[in-house]
């Protein structure tokens, strides 16, 4: 019981850390690609936390619902990332810049 709980805790804490790191990255970078990566980091963190909630009631074993939802979520995040990346490349080729105008700090 203890092991299940600590496992749940580890996954949850790791996920939370990833979310925090990702959010920080998202806020601190202006380079578009980095921002998208940061978004994916946050997404991974959330899925990890989500997965951890599957062990919420240890007696029932692993809950299937989060797994199903995580898979769906990953697909969604993937398609969002795909769209974002395609837009970024298009943007870079049109404007020659990897950041949005008016975002004055350049850190490529």
């Amino acid at each position: 019981m203890m092991t299940w709980a600590s496992g749940w805790l580890i996954y949850g804490l790791t996920g939370a850390t990833l979310i925090g790191l990702g959010l920080f990255g998202f806020a601190s970078h202006t380079n578009l690609l980095r921002r998208i990566l940061a978004f994916n980091v946050v997404g991974s963190g959330i899925f990890l936390v989500f997965g951890a909630t599957g062990f919420r009631v240890p007696e029932l074993g692993a809950d299937a619902v989060p797994q199903a939802l995580i898979i769906t979520g990953i697909v969604v995040a993937l398609s969002a990332t795909a769209l974002a990346v395609s837009l970024i490349t298009r943007h870079a080729s049109l404007s020659g810049s990897a950041t949005l105008p008016d975002d004055d700090r350049e850190d490529r």
Binding site: A27, L100, P101, D102, D103
Partner: peptide
């Protein structure tokens, strides 16, 4: 311009 910068502040 200020509004766009808010994007960074949004988080």
């Amino acid at each position: 311009a200020a509004e766009r910068r808010l994007l960074q502040l949004a988080p």
